[in-house]
């Protein structure tokens, strides 16, 4: 394989705040890189073509489908998965609200759901329920009927706004 047509790419990125360097197959999806090469199995492969949202992670501050991005495209990026966000404690209130409001059942969608919600909450303000619905419309949950999820997000947004105002 010549350099011009190489099928492996060297990448350097940060994942959960740590420097990672790797040589990855050009076609390696970011979610597979995280799950298989780094052992970060929080984000899940659901539909693997960008519809269900189970693999959502945070790349350079944005919620991204891990199955629609190649690992090679993450060269130089800052990637956060649920494991790292948990360790940093930055969504502790959201996680607590999910537990308290029973906003999950089988839990398979939860890590992706939390990544999408983090993006919404990071925008600041208190989104109304319609905005929450709109923002999460790309994250499927087959179990809960979503009501508890919206409640949890709303509670956290209001609490954060209250804290900011105080």
């Amino acid at each position: 394989m010549t350099e011009a047509f190489r099928d492996r790419i060297d990448i350097a990125l940060t994942v959960n705040g740590e420097q990672v360097e790797a040589r990855v197959p050009a076609g390696r999806h970011l979610v597979d890189f995280l799950r298989l090469d780094l052992g970060l199995t929080g984000a899940h492969a659901g539909c693997e073509h960008g519809v269900c949202g189970a693999c959502t992670i945070q790349v350079d501050g944005q919620a991204v489908r891990g199955c629609l991005m190649l690992a090679a495209q993450a060269d130089g990026a800052e990637v956060w998965t649920l494991e790292g966000l948990t360790e940093q404690g930055v969504i502790r209130d959201l996680q607590d609200a999910f537990v308290a409001r029973n906003a999950l059942q089988c839990g398979y969608c939860t890590p992706g759901m939390l990544a999408s919600i983090k993006e919404l909450l990071d925008m600041g303000g208190v989104p109304d329920r319609a905005t929450i619905r709109e923002h999460l419309s790309g994250n499927y949950c087959r179990c809960t009927g979503y009501e508890a999820i919206i409640d949890a997000v709303e509670t956290v947004a209001q609490a954060r706004a209250g804290k900011g105002a105080a």
Binding site: T41, E83, T86, F98, N102, L104, Q105, G107
Partner: peptide
Amino acid sequence: PHDAARLHVTGQAR
């Protein structure tokens, strides 16, 4: 809450 809720919200549930 669900017994595994804490595991789910931290990505540890296997």
